[in-house]
Amino acid sequence: MSEQLQVKTMAEYMAEGKQPEVLFWVGSAGSYDDRAKKITKAFVKLLNNAGVEFAVLGAEESNTGDVAKRAGNEFLFQMQAMMNIEVLNAYEIKRIVTCDPHSFNCIKNEYPSLGGVYDVVHHTQYIKQLIDAGRLSVKGDTYKGKRITFHDPCYLGRANSEFHAPRSVLRNTNANLVEMKKNKRFALCCGAGGAQMFKEPEKGDKDVNILRTEQALETTPDIIATGCPYCNTMMTDGIKAKEKEDTVTVLDVAEVLANSL
């Protein structure tokens, strides 16, 4: 990325005696995974562009424990959750935004009964708020007329009933939004959920991400948009397996927007 990203940690805000508007929960994928880091940067570009005073935890952030919980390890989940809650509460965090629907679901729904109560939003919801508030202006020519199909991440869509925000954000680019047959509440999983991301699939006829990619390709898209780093990996792998990487790109909603500023 050409321009320098402006990123401050919570510790730095603390030292200045200030509170940020929002804490950006980067998440493990967004911190370490090469593809997901690009999503993180695209989102920060949007935040910088809108002049949002945000903070990250940096080295004080640890895994949410979400994936351990889905794998059945409630101990590890609660250990992680309580460590994170201690940090978040010490900084008196009120509002959290994240690009990962799994972190979003976990912090929003599963942290409160362990003592971590925050206003948690997914980055597509946050971007929509920035656009609605006039803080972020989008030039609608990069993707004008391009066919974009949005793949609903399970933990944003079905699990938390957010179907509108990502689509609303994408419409700002004047792209041609096309829906897969299985969409919103009935969208097919990308195959990464429930800790599948970290293991080989069980024996079967095909991989879930291939099936979902086939469904996406039925819409003859130019771009498959997602709102989840794991969905992104799965769909990208699917496109490679189908040898369509020359004609179809998999992008996060934040990247689509960052390219449209």
């Binding site: 990123v7 935890l57 080295a59 351990a68 590890l76 970290f198 080989e200």
Partner: peptide
């Protein structure tokens, strides 16, 4: 499954499902 045990051990040791150092979280 073995791979999940590895993933969980990583989370226990370095706070991420992969074997990366927690101090490197902001390297991006």
């Amino acid at each position: 499954p073995m791979e999940l045990n590895n993933m969980m051990t990583n989370i226990e040791n370095n706070g991420a499902p992969w074997p990366y150092n927690q101090q490197d979280r902001l390297n991006w």
